[in-house]
Design a protein around this nucleic acid. Structure first.
Lengths: 336, 336
DNA sequence: TGCAATCATGGAACCGGTTGCTGACAGACG
DNA sequence: CGTCTGTCAGCAACCGGTTCCATGATTGCA
């Protein structure tokens, strides 16, 4: 492996001149610059990232923490981040931090303390207790995607609004018995779930249906939604419409309805939030959010902050658009 | 930020002694060691990874390349790798490399050349053309998960066997018209697909059914399987059983069958390969592989190789066990 | 033509660790 | 008691770059 000293030697200049020529900083004559560049490419010179980082203090690496990666939303966000960083020549170091796990504690103390990155993107991390302090202590800019409400620099949709919008869609179709399916367990999504539930509650109240509010807890997974929906649809609480906390739960509900012989949308309307990759196949009406875009935005904002640390970028909530497909229909008058 | 010099000063020793005491290398008296350790913890000393890497040549970081992360198998493998590395104190740098994309080319040249890692795990990477050379040029140990056949150090199941086993299960139930659903496009999975198709072909031939071999191409996704199955089941090629290249395709087929009013397993048996997280919910009979385990194994093997570069670890194919659920049944005699 | 400002370059310090070499000291042994 | 061996600690070089500072060469302007 040839270092910058070899390049300098070959170009007949000093290390410092070679460095300046390669990085473009400082003054260099055109002639030397081309000579150095030629020497570098002839030798296949690649600067040592460690040496550069040690000398400059910046790593050209971004850390990403998320509770897990094998869930549609997180994987999509990660793709978005990755693509953006790659384009800018940044590396991405991934940290897994399942809530409550001992590994998570290690990540927050040991791994973050190493400061292997110039900045951190926290996806779906709702820091608890001393984790907040530990994040501060990292001393690097942080951008969150769907983080806790009170964190700074959070990218995401307005969940209350999205959920309210979804509920209003059902109300507009004449539905009155609308159940909210999902959340209620102390899982990762806690905060997002809470906001979406809130939006549903608000829309119902505004429609004078406070008394009809029905929150059915369910794990936030497809099978979880399936199981919860089977229960819900089999007993006398059966609603005419379901708003699911996310598409996976919604799809679980659709599958449950089919199993039970309940026609969707004729006898049951279902609406989700996400626009999951499976949504189209199930003709699911949903509020589309674009997690890849969210990831990309988070990455862009973070890189921007690194360049201009003093003028913080203001982050607008991202839009969530209603996509009407074929899982929702006007309520069957006989069901009222 | 306090460096090792500060620690040394506080402990009243030299930098080198502090370094030895902290790393455990070389001789240090018990007394100095405790003093140094105390000083370090009082100062909250964390060694600079860059300085360590620069001096020692090792990064305590592992690179992971995969074509994409938002696909069940890859996400699971990644979880497995992550957990194992975390436990050993290693960082993980993720590289996304969709086949054929210009970004992939950059990853293979620019990003790999930086050698930010001690070793590389390539998941589902089937290197083409000069990529093989570029991987060699990295000069770091590489372990693959479901890579190309001729690569060294590949972790994975025996796909031919798994597929053969699945086919034999259907044959054992009396099925004769068995279709193989999936693959056929020049996608990521090409090699795995090919092997699984091969296993199916072999089992059919052995049963004297070469003439009945029916390969139906399909994108390797749930919606893709759905669409292909709708076609297949609607026309006169309709088989009594389907072997899908993976569970997502299999589940797509089950959903398609339901839509078409074809009872599973009464009128159609479906078997998959994977044991996807949704498999249980769809009562899918499948050959279970455990991607998390594969990821973990790959990580262990790689770390082992780093410690003992000269005695290569032999990697056995991982087991794939048949999980019989309720998507397969004896063939309906009237269909023969 | 003289002087200041600007440009191009080299030398050396520095980032923060690790490690080879050397010497002091202590205990073991003849 | 002298020498040998092994432990412990410090000095200084080194990993591979960046960057401050000094110097000499140019150029611009009065």
């Amino acid at each position: 492996m040839s270092g910058i000293a070899d390049v300098a030697l070959r170009a007949g200049v000093s290390k410092s001149t070679a460095s300046r020529a390669l990085s473009g900083a400082g003054h260099t004559s055109e002639r030397t610059r081309t000579r150095v560049l030629a020497a570098a490419s002839e030798l296949g010179y690649v600067p040592s990232t460690n040496a550069v980082s040690l000398a400059t203090g910046r790593t050209r690496n971004i850390g990403v923490v998320m509770p897990r990666v094998n869930r549609w939303f997180f994987a999509e966000v990660l793709e978005g981040i990755q693509a953006t960083l790659l384009a800018r020549g940044y590396d991405l170091t991934l940290y897994d931090a399942k809530p409550g796990s001992p590994e998570r504690a290690r990540v927050f103390t040991e791994f973050f303390a190493r400061k292997r990155f110039d900045g951190l993107i926290a996806v779906g991390i709702e820091p608890v207790d001393d984790e907040i302090g530990q994040l501060q202590a990292v001393g690097r800019p942080i951008v969150s995607v769907v983080g806790a409400q009170d964190q700074p620099g959070v990218v995401g949709i307005d969940d209350v609004r999205a959920s309210r919008r979804a509920t209003e869609h059902l109300l507009g179709l004449g539905h009155r018995k609308i159940a909210f399916l999902g959340a209620g367990d102390a899982e990762v999504w806690a905060n997002v779930d809470r906001l979406r539930l809130e939006g549903y509650r608000a829309a119902m109240s505004d429609a004078g249906l406070s008394a009809s509010i029905l929150h059915v807890p369910s794990p936030v997974t497809l099978p979880g939604g399936y199981a919860a929906a089977v229960d819900l649809l089999s007993d006398d609480r059966r609603p005419t419409a379901i708003l699911a906390v996310c598409d996976e739960v919604a799809i679980g509900a659709i599958i449950a309805a089919r199993r039970l012989g309940i026609a969707v949308p004729a006898s049951l309307s279902v609406v989700g939030i996400d626009d999951h990759e499976f949504a189209e196949m199930f003709a699911l009406t949903t509020l589309r959010q674009e997690p890849q875009e969210q990831g990309a935005l988070a990455a862009r904002v973070l890189l921007e902050t690194l360049q201009h640390p003093d003028n913080p970028t203001l982050i607008e909530p991202m839009p969530a658009r209603l996509i009407v497909r074929n899982s929702t229909a006007s309520v069957d008058p006989s069901q009222l």
